[in-house]
Nucleic acid binder design. Structure first.
Lengths: 146, 146
DNA sequence: TGTGAATAATAAACATGTTAACTAAATACG
DNA sequence: CGTATTTAGTTAACATGTTTATTATTCACA
């Protein structure tokens, strides 16, 4: 028995449970990313760009769960490193359109096997069905109006 | 069609899906915390201490998904603000034992109704059964060896 | 069509998180 | 015993994220 104030256990607190689960999943991924000198944030940007093609910076921010000022700084270094390219949109000159370069895409493909191994390990322990179910529920949760 | 490199969509990427789902859930909670001048991290520390009673700082770090240097800094200000108290363990003088104070516990109880309302809203949209299922799956995922 | 509001992005100041090095205490075990 | 290793916590330097203000451009609509 503890001194608890009749509050739901942290394991049943949705934000804490999501955070802890994410830490578990990210641990081996962080190891992989560290070995290729890529931050978690840059990796998400590459994933989003690979998926969506050419998009504006606000879209990257939204999809990769980053704030726009972070995106500005991150893209500046990613452009310098040749992983992405940027151009001013001619229709709306406020917009900067961003695309992944071949070099950027190579980073993803070069590490595809390692990524699949990490996912495979989790799938082997939880079972494919449960993992799919979890991803379905997470997608549904994302769609909730808050 | 996009330029995609045969990589699973980000919505089916476990770490990205967990992050996005967490952003959805945290949005109203962040509003609540901002109104009581509490950071997300301090809120997690209070939740963990309320749940576990007196624990050492490493335990807080592990349970609240924080690094030890962050815990050091966070606890220093929380002690100054009277939300927690610390004492040197007499058996093992390396350890610092931490407890939540009544003032700290009050912060949790004072905001219990608001927290329940946020959870209630999500539950109303997803259904209790699915939410329970999601929490079960998240607990299971946390237990995976990586 | 012109003027106020909204939007995209950036810059600067600040807060927070992270890494590496360090201190103090405890443990392992030769 | 006593010396090497491990552990708990802190500090300091650095990297990253966050907030607020600013600029440039476009949109809304009177």
């Amino acid at each position: 028995m503890t001194t608890q104030s009749h509050i739901k256990s942290t394991a049943r607190s949705l934000p804490i449970a999501l955070l802890r689960a994410r830490e578990t999943v990210m641990s081996p991924i962080r190891d992989m990313l560290q070995s290729i000198h890529l931050t978690e944030q840059k990796w998400r940007v590459l994933r989003v760009l690979d998926e969506l093609g050419e998009v504006e910076q606000s879209t990257i921010a939204h999809e990769a769960c980053l704030l726009l000022p972070s995106v500005t700084r991150i893209l500046r270094t990613m452009e310098a490193e040749g992983q992405i390219s940027r151009r001013r949109d001619s229709d709306d000159k406020r917009r900067t359109m961003v695309t992944i370069t071949n070099a950027g895409r190579s980073i993803l493909t070069d590490n595809l096997a390692a990524s699949l191994a990490i996912t495979g390990n989790i799938e082997a322990q939880m079972g494919q069905e449960k993992l799919d179910q979890l991803l379905d529920l997470l997608e549904e949760l994302q769609a909730v109006r808050t």
